[in-house]
Amino acid sequence: MMIIKNLTVSVAEKKILDDISFSFEKNKVYALMGPNGSGKSTLAYTLAGHPAYVLSKRSRIKYQSIDIGSLTADKRAKKGIFLSFQSPLSLNGVTVFQLLRLALSGKKDPVAIKREMEKLGKELKIKPELLKRSLNEGASGGEKKKLELLQAVILGAEFLIFDEIDTGVDVDALKTIATYLDSIKKGKTVLLITHYNRILKYIKPDKVVVLVNGQIVKTGDHKLAEEIEANGYTKYQKHIG
């Protein structure tokens, strides 16, 4: 699905990711863990194509066998890559429906989008007025993350990156989000970036990847997440130091 090779990424000339290689497969859920500043969000932004993240010459990102390293973010999104933001921005005067209608123009009928949106809104327990308002305006942390998930589903994304979907989200909302995500994961790749183990109770990762100082220091199954929850990252940081 997605293969990254020798990925070295800098922001404002500062190296954040250091020669990472990894393969993400279809039908799998990945948990990306690591201490603050280890480069987790950078990886998310890089895969989505943020223009501020500069790749080294040797870096390769292949998605569905196509080199997407030089594609702009909108073109990557059109190929099925979706990024759910850590802190989604509010968009003044733009509703989620307007956003989806524009993103899917020529692909999906607006009436169908609306219907799908309302149905999904109910399943995710999103207050109906939030769908009519400017996107994310006056929404709580949990509601914002639900709206991100709703967009991912309606856009038909196949590679879903969730940057800290569990931050600022209460227990009930987290359960709703994770359970729903678990129910739709088939045929997709899900990459969860998280500090905590709590979301992983509702959606079990097939693989846990630990990122420290811009490098992958350990991979394992879901037990690795539990081990980190108990002992922290100290021993991996030492390993590098």
Partner: peptide
């Protein structure tokens, strides 16, 4: 840039 990137990540 951040708003534009947000919308770009939706394919816009």
């Amino acid at each position: 840039e951040e708003k534009l990137f947000y919308l770009a990540s939706r394919g816009i």
